[in-house]
Design a protein around this nucleic acid. Structure first.
Length: 215
DNA sequence: TTCAAGATTTCCT
DNA sequence: GGAAATCTTGAAA
């Protein structure tokens, strides 16, 4: 028996995808333009299976990373190391990395094999009616911690019945805010690109929109 | 082999 | 508002 399994999702995120009427989108959804996918992911759900049960959260904030031409992206300049290998795969896979030696960050890979672009999942909120505190997943590191996602999950296919998936319902689209990305000041011209998208009505967004930001 | 720096969070003043 | 925590990755030597 493992008392403190780091991969264990927060029990307050327990939910039933079937009851919530959520389903995974087709592969073609992820193969589209990365900024479009980043926008579309806001309002969708990230879910993880652990010991036969599902845990999930509604995505409220994302960032697009545009591959070889984007100095903020790990694949900038064509970098193709073991860590970033999942970014080079076909759309619909998971890319997870460790930052600052302690926080995991989850990304959804977009485009086709050979085009290394992805969308960072920056924040989410627990299931409606659940007991999750409003800011349990209000940041990329916190999101991974709450769902128990680690680098061991990097490269997983989000489609095809694996333990991590992305789901969408039929609710209305959230009102989107736009701003430059967070924490990429080192990225020269790319630091000002407005590739961060968030649900303006959610209190789980990781950081208030920058003063000059907004739609 | 060595070393600087990071797609963050939390706690301190 | 500022800094510490903490370690893997990537690039240089």
């Amino acid at each position: 028996m493992i008392a403190n399994n780091p991969n264990r999702p927060d029990p307050r995120l327990l939910f039933d995808p079937a009851e919530a009427r959520l389903e995974p989108p087709p592969r073609a959804f992820f193969r589209r333009d990365t900024e479009l996918v980043a926008r579309a992911l806001v309002g969708m759900h990230i879910a993880r299976r652990f010991r036969g049960r599902w845990y999930g959260a509604r995505i409220v904030e994302t960032e697009a990373y545009l591959g070889v031409a984007d100095r903020a992206a790990h694949s900038w300049g064509g970098r193709r190391t073991e860590r970033v290998a999942p970014m080079w795969a076909d759309g619909g896979r998971l890319y997870v990395f460790l930052v600052y030696g302690m926080h995991h960050c989850a990304n959804v890979v977009t485009r086709r094999e050979g085009v290394p672009e992805a969308v960072l999942l920056r924040a989410a909120e627990g299931p409606p009616g659940g007991a999750a505190p409003p800011r349990l997943l209000s940041g990329p590191g916190k999101l991974c911690a709450a769902l128990g996602i680690t680098t061991a999950d990097s490269g997983l296919d989000l489609l095809g019945g694996g333990p991590v998936t992305v789901l969408r319902g039929r609710g209305r689209r959230p009102r989107l805010g736009v701003s430059p990305r967070i924490g990429v000041d080192y990225a020269a011209e790319a630091k000002d690109w407005r590739l961060r998208f968030f649900d303006t009505e959610s209190s789980a967004v990781s950081k208030a929109p920058s003063r000059r930001g907004g739609a």
